[in-house]
Amino acid sequence: MTSEEIVEKVKASLPDAIQDTALPQGDAVIFVAPDCLQKVAAFLKDDPSLKFDYLSDVCGVDYLNEEREPRFEAVYLLYSIDHQHSIRVRVGIEEENPSVPTVSEIWKGALYPEQELFDMFGIHIEGHPKNERLIMPKEWTGHPLRKDYPLTTETVTFSHNRDFKSDLVKSKPPTR
């Protein structure tokens, strides 16, 4: 199926769940609200002419600087191995209590990227078996890939600033 046919088919089958569709550079893209995500995902996987059985990745984006509503977005990249076509499902997520239902029951491969979505953006994944940090240390505060998380630098002591002592060195207990 071509991208136009995929988009038309999904739109015709689930008119209530699909917010919008687009064809940027010829790719099939659909926009879905978080509460309809599981329904759309199950349809995309089970419909015999679509059969999106392979989840390639889940990408998070924080559109804070773009001044658009909603702030967060989760993008699901899907393929059909048999039909060799692809689709992008974009799910807008509100800034207040961001959360999105899990699709890991439909594609098990979503377990890790969804957990990363929580770790990096603080988006709660409803129904995910592990709503905890994946890459960052367990005791970390903040979600690094949010746009309001500052990119900081750490001063390192070299010969030109040899009197500088980092906080790590200062707080180190004296050795005997």
């Binding site: 390639s56 990745d57 990408c59 998070g60 984006v61 924080d62 600087n65 773009e66 990249l77 098990k108 491969g109 377990l111 890790y112 990227p113």
Partner: peptide, 14 residues
Amino acid sequence: YRVKLRAPSFLAIP
């Protein structure tokens, strides 16, 4: 604005 890598090793670990 945003760069996300689809890493095959990452997806394969679970």
